[in-house]
Each structure stands twice: as C-alpha cells, then as structure tokens.
C-alpha cells in the first residue's frame, strides 16, 4: 500500500515548527491525489507531546521515534530513523517542509532510500503513482514540472504555497517505531546553537514584512520602528546580511527565507532577481527607493521614488494616527 509520510519538525525548544502544518497540508493534498493515507513521523528525545499536538490534523497514523540521539538535530541520526520507518511502512512519498532542517535531512533520507527528490515543491498534479511536481528553478525565473522515476519519491515543500493545515480531523493513531541502532552512531556531533532571539513575529509566518536593503546604509532603526508599529517581521536583502549589519537570519531571497505575507514593504532594496525569488509571492508589495530605475518597482503594486528615511517615519506616523483616531 502506498503511503505519504511527512516528517514533522520541532524547534530547538521542543515546540512544533509552524512550517510543519503547511507541509501536512501539502501531504494531505498529495495523499488525496495518490489515494494514499497520510502518515506523520515525529522524532524527538520525548516525542509524545508533539505527537499529541498533531493528532487532530488529519493524518491516519503518527509514528513516534524516541532516542536520546535526537536531543539535538543532526542529519546522520535522523536520516537512518526516517528511512527505516519509511521502508517499514512502505511509504512511496517522503516529505518535509523546505526549512533548513528539511533541506539538510531529506536528501540524506532520499539517498538511503535510493529515491529521487524534488526540492521546494510548489504544487502537485497527476494521480496515483504518476505524480508531477511543480518546483522553481533559476531563482524562480523558471517553473519546472518534473517527474521522479524512482519508486520511492522524496520532496521538500515550500510552506508559503500551502495554507497551514487546520485541526478537525479524526484523531490519528499514534504508534511507536523503535529507533534503529545506527541513530546513535552519528559521525557528526552537535556542538552549539546560537539563536537569534526576537520579539517580532517569525519572518516566514508574519502577515506583514518590512525589509531593508543597501539603501539603509546599515541603519535599521526606521525599518524596525515601522515593523513594530505594524506588528511586522523584519527582513533584509543579501547585501546587508553580508555586511553584518543585521543577522543572516533576516535574509529574504533565493537562498534565504521565502516569504509571502499579505504586505511586503521593501525599503532601499534594488530588487536583484535573487531577492525577488524570496518575496514575489507576497500579496501586496510596496517599494521605496530613491532610484526610479530600480528593478524592485517592476514587481511592486505601489512604488514611491523617495528617500526611505523620509518615507518610513511619515508612513509610521500616518498608521499610528489612524489607529488612535
């Protein structure tokens, strides 16, 4: 029997990553198309709380795999467990959200399963085992429809393309799967995690994102002030991350975060194709740039040719005034 297996991801503090709910939604869609039941895999030192939380999201079975080796994520511990589980249940599709962990883990799982893989899947078509995966290439300048010829198929899912799964299905059955012995023999050891802590919403989850580029000259005060007025996340172009002006984690683009908020405000960002790849799925795009020729204006719904240090405070004041009126 064909099965769609989605690997859940938890944050370092043990909480579920929201991207997993988007991957579950994609998994449900894939399961419908292929006539296969949806199963989830939860790997953790103590997976029961996470499995409990995922019960109402529509999976038929949630497989928990417990091991002290999962206290910190490393691909060499997780991959043998996911691959052993996928083989044991006869999964034809193994997927996860295209987060840093998903991108690191799934190809290693695919390698163990001799499965071909599609990264950053945007959509599915076809039915049964004849599924076509739609995914971006060349920084999103090209959309490709691909088929995977191997019997087992692996994928990562672009979270912004699928609405988060809603609870409400019948409760999933939770089954414990014993961790294979090789999860404890990883040649790679976790050393440390340096978390960028922020009180603002997570970039990939925020409904509004305010991003700054080279035009800020490294001064993000006005970007942050507007973001805080709007309850928005702060993003950045590659150039400002490279310069060390803001944490790397802020980067929106082909190789950074892909965001699709209802409002994306790009201030002092020229709009290189690698940046556009990460934000052009946003519902409304505002571009603020002194250069009227900046490519960002080609994707912006509203553009203003002006100095961001003049525009941002005025916009913030207007928003603030409208709130209190």
């Amino acid at each position: 029997m064909s099965i769609v297996l989605i690997v859940a991801e938890s944050q370092p503090d043990g909480h579920l990553r929201k991207a997993t709910l988007h991957a579950i939604a994609a998994g449900k869609e894939l399961a419908q198309k292929t006539g296969a039941p949806l199963h989830l895999a939860v790997l953790a030192e103590n997976p029961s709380a996470l499995a409990e939380q995922l019960k109402p999201y529509g999976a038929v079975v949630i497989h928990t795999v417990a091991s002290p080796a999962f206290a910190h994520y490393v691909a060499e511990s997780y991959a043998p467990a996911v691959a052993a589980l996928a083989s044991s249940i006869g999964a034809d599709f193994v997927g996860a959200a295209a987060t840093a962990q998903g991108r690191d883990l799934l190809p290693r799982v695919a390698a163990r399963l001799k499965a071909a893989m599609a990264s950053d899947v945007l959509a599915f078509s076809g039915s049964g085992t004849d599924v076509t995966f739609t995914r971006p290439m060349w920084a999103g300048s090209v959309i490709a429809d691909v088929k995977l010829k191997t019997s087992v198929k692996a994928l990562t899912i672009r979270a912004t393309e699928f609405s988060a799964a809603e609870p409400g299905g019948g409760p999933a059955e939770v089954k414990a799967f014993p961790a294979p012995a090789d999860v404890a023999s990883s040649p790679t050891q976790f050393v440390s995690f340096n978390e960028v802590k922020s009180a603002r919403p997570e970039l990939t989850e925020a409904s509004i994102v305010v991003s700054g580029g080279r035009g800020t000259k490294g001064d993000f005060k006005e970007i942050e002030a507007l973001a805080d007025e709007l309850g928005a996340a702060v993003g950045a172009s590659r150039a400002v991350c490279d310069a060390g002006w803001v944490p790397n984690d802020y980067q929106v683009g082909q190789t950074g975060k892909v965001v699709a908020p209802k409002l994306y405000i790009a201030a002092g960002i020229s709009g290189a194709i690698q940046h556009l790849a990460g934000m052009k799925g946003s519902k409304v795009i505002v571009a603020i740039n002194k250069d009227p020729e900046a490519p960002i204006f080609q994707v912006a719904d509203y553009g203003i040719v002006a100095d961001l240090f003049k525009v941002l405070p005025e916009l913030r004041a207007a928003i603030h005034a409208s709130k209190s009126s």
Partner: peptide, 16 residues
C-alpha cells in the same frame, strides 16, 4: 552552519 533562527556548530569526523 546557517539554519533557521541562527547559527549552529557541528563537529564532523573527517573525511566529511
């Protein structure tokens, strides 16, 4: 390594 929400450090056995 660059990961979501920060930087993580791994010790890898060589060759890697």
């Amino acid at each position: 390594r660059e990961v979501d929400n920060g930087l993580t450090t791994l010790s890898v056995k060589l060759p890697a």
